[in-house]
């Protein structure tokens, strides 16, 4: 693996703002959240499932925050992604979103924050800012 420090600033897509990995299988929801976060000054990588998210997490792309839905098609769901992330990247903030899961279950599994669905775009921005302590 190429060390993340080997990617120089100014490289295509080398992040200069906080970089958020967004995992959501519903295209329109993913697009709305991604566009809102970009408008708020964050860089966003859109993943359709946990497998795509893991491909990014195993790459040299810097990820400052992971946001993931729970119920998704693919080899693992959002909680599986959370478990893998906790094992490999224990300090990465993870926001879990769900309309079905008990918040305490996500937090017990290592999520740093839980946002219940349905949520407003402002609520997810607020959660991101709280996790990153930044405006972008």
């Amino acid at each position: 693996m190429v060390p993340r420090s080997d990617i120089p600033r100014g490289e295509p897509c080398a992040p200069t703002r906080s970089n958020i990995l967004l995992v959501e299988d519903e295209l329109l929801i993913r697009m709305m959240i991604g566009d809102k976060l970009r408008d708020e000054g964050f860089d966003v990588i859109e993943a359709v499932n946990a497998d795509e998210a893991l491909a990014i997490l195993k790459s040299p792309v810097r990820v400052d925050l992971l946001i993931s839905d729970v119920r998704m098609p693919g080899s693992i769901d959002g909680l599986g992604l959370l478990a893998t992330t906790r094992a490999d990247l224990p300090n990465l903030p993870v926001i879990i979103t769900s309309g079905h899961l008990e918040p305490r279950l996500a937090l017990a599994d290592g999520a740093t924050r839980f946002v219940a669905k349905p949520f407003s775009l402002e609520a997810i921005v607020e959660a991101v800012r709280a996790e990153l302590g930044t405006n972008g």
Binding site: P12, C13, L27, R30, R38, D43, E46, V48, A55, I56
Partner: peptide, 24 residues
């Protein structure tokens, strides 16, 4: 391919396009 899709999408956003990303 998320790598290709994301990098090309960002490229187009940088030159002013609105971009919708579809994985399939």
């Amino acid at each position: 391919d998320i790598v290709s899709r994301h990098v090309i999408a960002d490229y187009l956003r940088h030159c002013g396009y609105a971009v919708v990303e579809a994985a399939n």
